[in-house]
Design a protein around this nucleic acid. Structure first.
Length: 403
DNA sequence: AATCCACAGGAAGTGCTGGGCG
DNA sequence: CGCCCAGCACTTCCTGTGGATT
């Protein structure tokens, strides 16, 4: 026992004082820095739109577009935080990520909780929760700024009636007011919206362009100065991270993640400098981990469908179609003794896999031979095998896949 | 030009879980 | 306790369709 304690102690000591990191937390994705380079214009414009709240009138609803990692969330949180500081208790903001909170009920429940109402996560009707939200808000007598991040998930998942509610909620309020800030990275999002919601939500629009490679370098340099000890980064490390991320739509989150993972790898290897090869390793790790984690978390039948696609892929079938997948899938299902789902469901599963980016599915017409989807894998075979491997319900199936 | 395949994908419903409320 | 709710994974039934072949 004491031996364990001694060994652990030594291990912890080695990590307690990092030779690379000074403040590692500054590179984590949810950290919002107090200065956001190359976003002055967006900060200013958002501030301009929201400022009326300080003099007691309701700000316009705002709609924010921009690809992932272009600073939408960071800028919004930053501006709102500053606004709250200035305004005192009469202005509050609620941040909701609609990817996690993806139904009307859950959104309204979270809003109700934000104004101090107790709400169970199930059991009540949506309208009841909405009523509680309104009474709670009226009691607080304040301006509520509702940030709906990744708002496209709401509409895609059939929860857009919240938007309708929220855009009209001010009619039902007397002492309080609500403004909505919608954030999305889907540029065609507005097209899917109900016309009334669209006009109300889009009172003001803000666009966040992707960062260029140069801008990403600036950001990384600034963060690195505070996050690392002086001189631990090899000179080309930052430009490389920036270049890789710039190729991915100028995604700043990816750039920071690359830098963080590269430094983690260097530290794990016991090196005192972060070098470009560590960045390359980080890049591979990020891509692979994303896919593997995703696959591991899938329900059984989704995994089976994916396994069926993998088998067809290995058999070098020229055109993989829905029908072919279903045949292969039913064979797999029989072998492990599970009831198959219908073809209709498999069709949906294929769409889900496509949305997740694991496969690429395209509707094509084969003329006389019908309409179907042409499916291709878009992650490596090895990642899929890795992701499917640990599922015990698949039994010895994966051994066959590995051959 | 008409036909017809092999599905796409919408609508509505089922059965189940995990929870209200009074 | 009985009856209500939401969410999920799925089914049943359905109408729609691009374009090679007849």
């Amino acid at each position: 026992m004491s031996k364990v304690a001694v060994n652990l102690g030594a291990l912890f000591d080695r990590f307690k004082v990092s030779r690379i990191f000074k403040r590692r937390e500054l590179l984590l994705p949810d950290y919002v820095p107090s200065y956001l380079p190359h976003r002055d214009q967006q900060i200013y414009r958002l501030g301009l739109v929201l400022a009326p709240v300080l003099s007691g009138s309701r700000p316009s609803n705002v709609f924010i577009y921009g690809l992932t990692g272009t600073g939408k969330t960071a800028v919004t949180k930053y501006v709102l935080r500053e606004l709250e500081k200035k305004a005192g208790s009469k202005v509050r903001y609620v941040y909701i990520n609609c990817r996690h909170t993806d139904t009307s009920y859950r959104v309204i429940a979270e809003l109700a909780q934000a104004v101090g109402q107790r709400v169970p996560f199930t059991g009540l009707s949506t309208s009841e929760v909405f009523r509680r939200f309104i009474t709670g808000l009226e009691r607080k007598q304040r301006f509520l700024l509702v940030v709906l991040d990744e708002i496209d998930y709401l509409v895609k998942k059939k929860g857009d009636d919240v938007l309708y509610f929220l855009t009209r909620i001010n009619d039902q309020l007397s002492v309080s007011k609500v403004s909505i800030i919608g954030i999305t990275n889907d540029l065609r999002f507005m097209d899917f919206l109900d016309a009334r919601v669209r006009s109300s939500l889009g009172e003001e629009e803000l666009v966040f362009p992707p960062y260029t490679s140069r801008e990403l370098e600036d950001i990384l340099k600034m963060r690195a100065e505070q996050a690392f000890h002086p001189g631990v980064l090899e000179e080309e490390v930052i430009p490389l991270c920036a270049a890789i991320a710039a190729r991915q739509n100028g995604d700043c989150r990816l750039a920071l993640d690359l830098l963080l993972k590269a430094a983690d790898i260097a530290e794990r290897l016991g090196e005192v400098k972060v070098r470009t090869e560590h960045v390359r390793m980080a890049q591979k790790e990020i891509e692979k981990n994303l896919a593997i984690d995703l696959i591991k978390s899938m329900p059984l039948h989704v995994k089976l469908v994916l396994a069926a696609i993998l088998i067809l892929h290995k058999k070098k079938v020229k055109v993989i179609t829905t029908g072919g997948i279903y045949d292969q899938y039913t064979k797999l299902v029989q072998r492990i003794g599970v009831e198959p789902v219908t073809q209709r469901r498999v069709s949906d599963i294929i769409n889900e896999l496509d949305m997740l980016g694991v496969i690429n599915a395209q509707v094509v017409s084969l003329g006389r031979y019908g309409r179907t989807k042409r499916i291709k894998l878009s992650v490596s075979e090895s990642s899929i095998k890795e992701g499917l491997k640990e599922d015990l319900t698949l039994g010895d199936l994966w051994i066959e896949l590995a051959s």
